[in-house]
Design a protein around this nucleic acid. Sequence first.
DNA 1: CTCACTACTAAGGAATCCTAAATATTGTCA
DNA 2: TGACAATATTTAGGATTCCTTAGTAGTGAG
Lengths: 220, 220
Amino acid sequence: MADKLENTTEPLSNRVVAGLQKIGLAMKSQAWKEANRRRVTPLQGQTLALLRMRVGRGATMSALAQELAVTLPTASDVIRTLEVKGWVRKKRSKVDRRVITITLTAEGMRKADGGAGWPDFLAAVADQLPVAEQESLLRILIKMIRTLQERSEIPVARMCVTCCYFRPRVYDDPERPHHCDFVNAPFGDRLLRIDCAEHEPAAKAQAERNWKTFNQGSRL
Amino acid sequence: MADKLENTTEPLSNRVVAGLQKIGLAMKSQAWKEANRRRVTPLQGQTLALLRMRVGRGATMSALAQELAVTLPTASDVIRTLEVKGWVRKKRSKVDRRVITITLTAEGMRKADGGAGWPDFLAAVADQLPVAEQESLLRILIKMIRTLQERSEIPVARMCVTCCYFRPRVYDDPERPHHCDFVNAPFGDRLLRIDCAEHEPAAKAQAERNWKTFNQGSRL
DNA sequence: CTCACTACTAAGGAATCCTAAATATTGTCA
DNA sequence: TGACAATATTTAGGATTCCTTAGTAGTGAG
């Protein structure tokens, strides 16, 4: 009898997926509510957020499509709408005249700074968790995202653990075991990034080595 | 200098949100890829999955809209498309002739059984995690979802922790501390459900009490 | 100078979303 | 009973998101 439940229910991973789906559902519906409040649809918001991370450099249409995980035509659609709204500017590259470089206008920057594309409500919810749980969650998410990336099921993720500037566990201080060569400073697990503007992919061998080093000292 | 990173980067919860967003992005893009492969769009898939969980009972239009976290007209849209495809049937309730009851057809059931609306790839990724991490993740997700629900930022979640049949921590066995009155059997954390078909919401006072009891023995 | 390739746009169509305004039914209360 | 509020759903209308397929330029290799 005690095994009844064990047998009739799905594996643990399915429950985890169900949970992630619920969170996804919440993100989607809240994003649309925000959209109608602020006149920025979810995809537009994501696009603004992405461009904001690249101020100065801008982004090509292809890069945008890849990062937004949509097809080129869809990316083209969004950018056209955003251009009509006056939030982005399109410019032909002088080096390669096929390439379009997209940048935020001043007004677009304002919209992006206003938090477009950022699910505030979820940050508030995450903040209700004790710090230890937030750290666990972050570590686990990083693990999953890394696997997704290895399997090419996610476009881009500029995570420390795949970055050439990342030096995992080089210090004894358990609060700040890692080092970032870009800013040249030590840091701890809680500062591990998912989407770092300065990210440069590490060579495959180094990435592999880093991941092992990073993982072996896991405090989960 | 050691504080440079601490000061220039956002709080931990923001990283967690960034991670969840990446997962959400992956879910969305994979769902659309599946859509084009199997001729079932994401919303349609979710709808079929939902109706599958309710075989025998069916669902009203309002309930569906609420669970899918969309407006009534949007729900009406999907159902019309699914009806045209021959996967659902609409019937007027005899008790209240305003109400429409929606049920799966045999073919709709086949589609639903075929895994429509279920992100397989994510289950595969979750399964790469050690069981202990999966359990942590599940617990943390449950916590977040519960908060979301308290704040009415998520429609419905039929979780054990809000169910009237749930008896948390009534046994000493650390593997199976809880009891489900519905199936009348003990079970452990790893079987905690997010979306149980048999869920009945508990009274507010009991829910509160249950949550406290459940939480105090947390093994995170 | 041609041909393959790359970056992007256009065309076309289905779905997903919303708000606002019907429509039909039910329940309430005088 | 009869008006009127409330409820469940649909219609109408419009913007956006999303795809596939088919152009159109521009680049680069030979």
